[in-house]
Deep mutational scan, measured.
Amino acid sequence: DIEITTNGEEDAKRVIKELQKRNLEYHIEVHGNQWVIKVR
Rank of each mutant, 00 (worst) to 15 (best):
D1H: 12
D1P: 10
D1N: 11
D1S: 11
D1T: 13
D1K: 08
I2G: 04
I2V: 09
I2S: 05
I2E: 05
I2D: 04
I2R: 08
I2N: 04
I2Q: 06
E3S: 12
E3L: 14
E3T: 15
E3A: 09
E3G: 03
I4E: 01
I4P: 01
I4V: 05
I4F: 09
I4L: 05
I4H: 02
I4W: 08
I4M: 03
T5A: 06
T5L: 12
T5K: 11
T5N: 06
T5E: 05
T6Y: 05
T6G: 13
T6H: 02
T6A: 13
T6R: 05
N7D: 11
N7Y: 15
N7Q: 11
N7C: 15
N7G: 06
N7L: 12
N7S: 10
N7T: 11
G8W: 06
G8P: 02
G8M: 05
G8H: 09
G8Q: 07
G8D: 13
G8F: 08
G8T: 15
G8Y: 07
G8N: 15
E9P: 12
E9I: 12
E9G: 06
E9Q: 07
E9N: 04
E9F: 12
E9W: 15
E10K: 09
E10L: 09
E10W: 10
E10P: 05
E10F: 08
E10M: 08
E10D: 10
D11K: 06
D11M: 13
D11I: 08
D11W: 13
D11V: 07
D11N: 10
A12S: 04
A12D: 00
A12I: 04
A12Y: 06
A12L: 13
A12N: 02
A12M: 12
A12W: 05
A12E: 01
K13F: 13
K13Y: 14
K13L: 14
K13P: 01
K13T: 08
K13M: 15
K13A: 11
K13S: 07
R14V: 08
R14F: 10
R14P: 03
R14T: 06
R14W: 14
R14Y: 10
V15G: 01
V15F: 08
V15K: 03
V15H: 03
V15N: 01
V15S: 02
V15T: 04
V15R: 03
V15Q: 02
I16P: 00
I16A: 05
I16V: 07
I16Y: 02
I16N: 01
I16T: 03
K17V: 10
E18K: 06
E18M: 15
E18N: 07
E18P: 01
E18A: 12
E18V: 11
L19W: 02
L19F: 04
L19R: 00
L19G: 00
L19V: 03
Q20G: 04
Q20W: 06
Q20D: 10
Q20V: 12
Q20L: 11
K21E: 12
K21Y: 09
K21H: 08
K21F: 10
K21Q: 10
R22P: 01
R22A: 10
R22S: 06
R22L: 15
R22W: 13
R22K: 09
R22M: 14
N23P: 02
N23M: 09
N23V: 03
N23H: 11
N23T: 03
N23W: 05
N23E: 05
N23S: 07
L24D: 02
L24H: 03
L24T: 03
L24G: 02
L24R: 05
L24I: 12
L24Y: 07
L24A: 06
E25S: 14
E25R: 13
E25D: 11
E25H: 14
E25I: 14
Y26V: 04
Y26H: 02
Y26L: 04
Y26G: 02
Y26S: 01
H27S: 15
H27I: 14
H27G: 05
H27F: 13
H27D: 12
H27L: 11
I28L: 08
I28S: 01
I28D: 00
I28M: 05
I28W: 03
I28N: 00
I28Q: 01
I28T: 03
E29A: 06
E29D: 05
E29L: 07
V30C: 10
V30S: 04
V30R: 12
V30P: 02
V30K: 11
H31E: 05
H31M: 11
H31D: 06
H31L: 10
H31N: 12
H31I: 14
G32R: 03
G32L: 04
G32Q: 05
G32W: 03
G32M: 04
G32V: 03
G32Y: 03
G32K: 04
G32I: 03
N33C: 07
N33I: 05
N33G: 11
N33M: 08
N33W: 06
N33L: 08
N33A: 08
Q34T: 13
Q34W: 11
Q34L: 13
Q34E: 07
Q34M: 13
W35T: 03
W35A: 02
W35M: 04
W35C: 04
V36F: 07
V36Y: 06
V36N: 02
V36W: 03
V36C: 04
I37F: 08
I37G: 00
I37Q: 00
I37S: 00
I37P: 01
I37Y: 00
I37M: 02
I37H: 00
K38L: 11
K38W: 10
K38T: 14
K38R: 13
K38V: 14
K38Y: 14
V39A: 03
V39N: 00
V39Q: 01
V39G: 01
V39W: 06
R40N: 08
R40I: 14
R40Y: 13
